[in-house]
Amino acid sequence: MNDIPVEFSPHRRRLMQGLAALAGSALLPFGAFPAAASGDTDLAAVSRRLTGRDDLNPAYLAALDNAFRGIDAGFADRLAGLRAVLDTADDAALRARLADAEDEAAALARDILTGWYLGVAGSGDDAVCVAYADALSHAVVADVLRPRSYAYGAYGSWSAKPL
């Protein structure tokens, strides 16, 4: 992580966004940071890129941010580093990097994805459940499946062809 600056000023962030915009949509099909608003946080930007969603629930985002900070005092710094990585990687490169078990930035990205898709921040004894029913993995299949423990339907409703 030595190559990632500890400080990551707002000024520099704006500069990066400008560069990303110049890079064009062919290189970054999702746009690196779509819908970036003033006061946008690193976690919001990183989350939008990683989920491909620009309608993320702000309360969920705040809960995740809170949980990650509680688990890891260096979270903010590592997040800024990850943001820089996302800025410069296109989807194919990012996919390859995120599969690297040893890469620290990738590990943080996977943690954030786990936070959004499974509602869990952190791992082992530090793990915190931030969301359950609202976790995005459930949203992806909501037309067919319910989060476990929630009823599929009245008795026998599961016999019908799902779709």
Binding site: A99, S137, V140
Partner: peptide, 20 residues
């Protein structure tokens, strides 16, 4: 299998629309 598949996919580097 939603949870275990999600874990597998995140581990394999999937993200965004491709993940979903």
């Amino acid at each position: 299998r939603v949870t275990s598949i999600t874990e597998d996919l995140i581990k394999a580097g999937y993200f965004g629309a491709a993940l979903e």
